[in-house]
Design a protein around this nucleic acid. Structure first.
Length: 122
DNA sequence: GTTTTGACATTGA
DNA sequence: GTCAATGCCAAAA
């Protein structure tokens, strides 16, 4: 598959990253997904960590990286308080409630759950 | 080249 | 609920 010109063109991993981005872009505003969910949907079920790496590689992008949190609903980023706070602000701005300073209410805002409910009741 | 670190998840205690 | 061990793999050191 041919891709637009960038430094990652020759790396097969770049395609995986793109798959991740493609999925993340589909998370609706006001919803969240976990790294593991993204990995599974991209057919790399054991590769949650790579999703984190893919998002970390983003610079200025339209990819809504802030809608991705850990499986327990926590904001990750241990060593980047600035980004961590920005992610929290962006989520709050979208109406996502937090049950703790850095933990969202997953049960309520989980994208997958929303999709299932849409299938059932939508 | 190898080792360590890291925006994670799962399992078992 | 927490914690540690383990697996995964890319980037940095």
């Amino acid at each position: 598959m041919h891709r637009s010109m960038n430094d990652y063109d020759d790396l097969p991993d770049a395609e995986v990253f793109e798959e991740f981005y493609k999925i993340v872009r589909q998370i609706p505003k006001g919803k969240v997904a976990s790294y593991g969910q993204i990995a599974k949907m991209a057919n790399y079920p054991e590769d949650a960590r790579r999703v984190g790496h893919a998002l970390a590689a983003l610079e200025d992008s339209e990819v809504p990286w802030h809608r991705v949190v850990t499986a327990s609903g926590k904001i990750a980023m241990p060593t980047r308080p600035h980004l961590r706070d920005r992610q929290r602000d962006l989520l709050l701005q979208e109406g996502v409630e937090f049950i703790d300073e850095y933990q969202v209410h997953m049960q309520r805002y989980d994208w997958q759950v929303q999709q299932v409910q849409a299938d059932l009741f939508g």
